[in-house]
């Protein structure tokens, strides 16, 4: 398995690592059982993401996709950020090995989870439901992985 230079760069020098104490939205996806968790913090002003930080437990690809996802959402409106797909994250990293595509899925879900949290806090969406991403289990994530293998 080989990582692209860009993946290695984002792994060794991850952008936007950390926490935002007064974040407007925080999303956490993944499961320690599966070996990856991403937590994303957003600062949002007038629906524009002005700052973003992340923390990740996971492999090289998990760290790199988290880092790239934060770069991609910074300065975007929340609607634009919601349009960022896992493929876009992977492409921005010059690709991922097939068995690591699920990391990019997790990155996409982390963005969504953080924005959902922001919307909930603002009362923009129903508070009762949990987001899809947060309830994802290993098996679901691994389905993505198997798809990529085929």
């Amino acid at each position: 398995m080989m990582y692209s230079e860009k993946v290695m760069d984002h792994f060794m020098n991850p952008r936007n690592v950390g926490e935002i104490a007064d974040a407007d939205g925080v999303g956490q996806v993944g499961n320690p059982k599966c070996g990856d968790i991403m937590k994303m913090y957003l600062k949002i002003e007038n629906d524009v993401i002005t700052d973003v930080k992340f923390k990740t437990f996971g492999c090289g690809a998990a760290v790199a996709t988290s880092s790239m996802a934060t770069e991609l959402v910074k300065g975007k409106t929340i609607d634009e950020a919601l349009k960022i797909t896992n493929k876009a994250v992977a492409e921005a990293l010059d690709g991922l090995p097939p068995v690591k595509m699920h990391c990019s899925v997790l990155a996409e879900e982390a963005i969504r989870a953080a924005i959902d949290d922001y919307k909930r806090r603002k009362g923009l969406i129903d508070d009762s439901g949990t987001c899809d991403a947060c309830s994802k289990r290993c098996e679901d994530i691994h389905h993505h992985m198997n798809d990529e293998d085929e």
């Binding site: 690592v17 926490e19 956490q28 991403m38 937590k39 923390k55 437990f57 760290v63």
Partner: peptide, 8 residues
């Protein structure tokens, strides 16, 4: 660990 939400 500094990067890990579990450590946090």
């Amino acid at each position: 660990r500094e990067m890990s939400p579990l450590y946090e």
